[in-house]
Design a protein around this nucleic acid. Structure first.
Lengths: 222, 222
DNA sequence: GGATGTGAATTGGTTCACAGCA
DNA sequence: TGCTGTGAACCAATTCACATCC
């Protein structure tokens, strides 16, 4: 039952994982994959994978599995990676640079049009082949290069200002690494990646007492 | 009802956000805060905040709110940030460097003992005052410095090997930035931060059709 | 037979509504 | 009165179990 309408974010976040595995399988000329095999390679349950895929329509063949190439194409289409997405990275520090490099090397589905910064050291140069512009040129470049997605890696105090400028130019989605609650109109999606949250919440699981608790329930097999 | 036992991950992930706000309030000598005010500053609903805090015991005063200092101390204690946590960062590239810098500047609750890499350019040097060691010294240093948490920023192909080494030395939790499914024994917690997933899932929300859908339901207020 | 696709049951998390207390 | 604390209701997501089809 090909479903239109909004997919749950939980499902959407798994699609790139499937895509990565499928890219790999296609590269290795493996033409068919079962939900069970996908489960092993992703860590998600086979049922969940089937439900996820079925949400967008039935792509598999009963008794056989999924055609890797076809499924890959479908997922690209669902996410919107079949059409080029232009991305601007604001902040050319280590994080912005890491993100740029990473995307250029590992993610062939997006196009990083530029990094933006205020530091004279970096402005005018290139990082991984991507030009570094002055932040003042952000709005012009968004228009010119039809940027749909912005990645914010500037310090928290400047993040809202950067977001405001991008919103003005109708950027549709923003990935924010600054540890700040950012405001934007309803129609602009903001996702936050907060390194402090990730580390601190992890520390909760590293506590001594918890490790002790875990040891107690040493009665599981699989 | 002071609850012992395992807290849901969803709750744990919000604690660092509360902590950040409380740090700020305490710094500004604001002594009391209501769940409503916390709601405004974090974006989480007031009920949710009260439920979260109540999960660990009742910290507030009815009719008044929460004492900022006390609540801050309690959250530090719950997460486990009252005791020093030693962190090793494996991979001294841009991402590792960004993470080190960020933590040293913004997160006074953890202690980055070292970065680890194989590149002769960086090994032996310092980054943000943190020494860079050769990867070969990882296991010795984990023992010596009592490292409980590892942060993996190496390329995906090397990630599992690094994890295996850390597991051997009884590291309790790992924050993984490599786009790979890593295996570790039950008692080691691995959290993954995957930049590709974040960007690609965001692109789903930037699609034209979706933006169009959104425009249709322009009948909300608040 | 062997895998997908899917209603039903379950689990988990959030919101509601209000009781309880300073 | 005002704000916390919390059972109840609600909603979302996952798992189960099995019908369905190649």
């Amino acid at each position: 039952m090909p479903q239109r309408g909004e997919a749950p974010i939980s499902v959407i976040k798994r699609l790139p994982v499937y895509l990565r595995v499928l890219d790999n399988l296609v590269k290795r000329d493996i033409e068919v994959v079962s939900s069970k095999s996908l489960s092993k390679q992703t860590g998600f349950s086979a049922e969940q994978i089937r439900k996820d895929l079925a949400f967008f329509g039935a792509f598999g063949t009963r008794g056989t599995g999924y055609n890797t190439n076809y499924l890959r194409e479908r997922i690209l289409r669902i996410i919107g990676l079949d059409k080029q997405t232009n991305v601007a990275i604001i902040g050319a520090g280590h994080l912005g640079t890491a993100f740029a490099r990473y995307n250029i090397r590992e993610n062939p589905y997006t196009n990083v049009v530029g990094l933006f910064d205020v530091s004279p050291d970096s402005v005018g140069g290139e990082i991984e082949g991507v030009p570094v512009y002055h932040l003042n040129d952000l709005q012009d470049m968004i228009k010119q290069e039809k940027v749909q997605v912005g990645v914010v890696t500037v310090p928290a105090v400047h993040a809202q200002e950067v977001v405001d400028r991008m919103v003005e130019e109708n950027v549709k989605a923003i990935l924010n690494f600054a540890p700040a609650k950012l405001n934007a109109p309803e129609h602009v999606t903001i996702h936050n990646v907060d390194l402090t949250i990730e580390l601190q919440s992890l520390i909760y699981f590293a506590r001594e007492e918890l490790s002790a608790d875990r040891d107690k329930e040493e009665n599981k097999e699989e």
